[in-house]
Amino acid sequence: MTAVAAGSGTGAADLPAPPEAPPRSQWQLFRRRFLHHKLAVFGLIVIVILYVLVFGASFWVPNDPLEQDVLLGTQPPSGEHWFGTDQLGRDYFARVIYAGQISLKIGLAVAIISTVVGALAGAIAGFFGGLVDQILMRVTDLFLIVPAIAILAIALKKFGGTDIVIILVLAGLGWMSIARVVRGQVLSVKEKEFVEAARAIGASNGRIIFRHILPNCIGPIVVNATLAIAIAIVTESTLSFLGFGVQKPDTSWGNMLYDAKGNVRFDEHLLYFPGLFILITVLCVNFVGDGLRDAFDPQSRR
C-alpha cells in the first residue's frame, strides 16, 4: 500500500523527467513574482533608503535642525541650505529629515501594532464565531459610520499629542480594518481539509490558529500591514495639520505643513518639501503593497 502510494506520488517514474525547472518552493515563487514587479522593487529600495537616511540623520546631515539664525530669516533653497531656511533661519533640509523620524516612526509602529492586534482579533473572531465575532463586527460597524479622522481628533484632544499616544490612538482605530480582512480569510480557510486533519490528530485550537490558519492568511495580512504604514503617515500628517496631532517641540511632516500653511504666496519652498516627502513615502509604500498583493495572489493581477 505504501509502496503504491509512494510510486504514484513521485509521478510515474517511467515518464521522462521534465528537462528544466527544478521544483520551486513557495518562497522562491513568491520572490520571483515580487522581483518581477519593477515598481514594487523600486518602491522597496526607496523606502529602505529613506528609513536608513532619516534614522541615521545624525551621522550625515551637515546642519543642526534646531540652530537658529534669526537675522538670516527665510531663505529660498541654495547651495548652502539645500531646502532653504525657515522663518527662524533654521536649515530646512535638516528639519525635514529630522521630522521624518517622527513621521516614519509613527507609520511603522502603527502598522506593526494594528497588524498584530488586528490579525489576532480577526483570527479569533473568525475561528470561534459566535458572540466574540458578533461583538467584533458590531464594534467595527460603529466606527464605519463616523469619519475616522473625527474620532481620532477627539481622542487626541483628550489624551494629548505625544508620539506614543498618537501611535496607540491610530493603532486603536487601524486594527479594525485588518481584523475584518483576516476574519473573512479565516472563515474560508477554517473549512479546508487540512484544518480538519489537524483537529483529527488532536491539535489544540491555539496550534490550529497559529500553525495552520494564520500562515494561510499571510498574504492579506502582509499587504494590509504595508498599506497601514501609508495610511498612518497620511492620517498623522492630516491630524497634525489640523492641530490635533504631534505637538511642539516634536515635529513631523504634518506639523511642518501646519506651520507652512500661511506660505501659499511667498516662501512656498516651506510648503513644497515636507509634502513631497509624504508623497514619495506613501507612493512607494503603495507600490510595495501592490507588488506584494500580486506576488501573494497571482490571480488578483489587474
Binding site: S237, T238, V264, E268, V282, L283
Partner: peptide, 22 residues
C-alpha cells in the same frame, strides 16, 4: 491616479492655491 491617491489632500489644497491663485 497613483499620485492622487498618495497625496495628502490638504497638501494638494495648499499647492493648488499656491499655483492657481498666485
Amino acid at each position: 491616479s497613483y499620485i492622487a491617491i498618495a497625496m495628502p489632500p490638504f497638501w494638494f489644497g495648499l499647492l493648488a492655491i499656491n499655483l492657481a491663485a498666485f
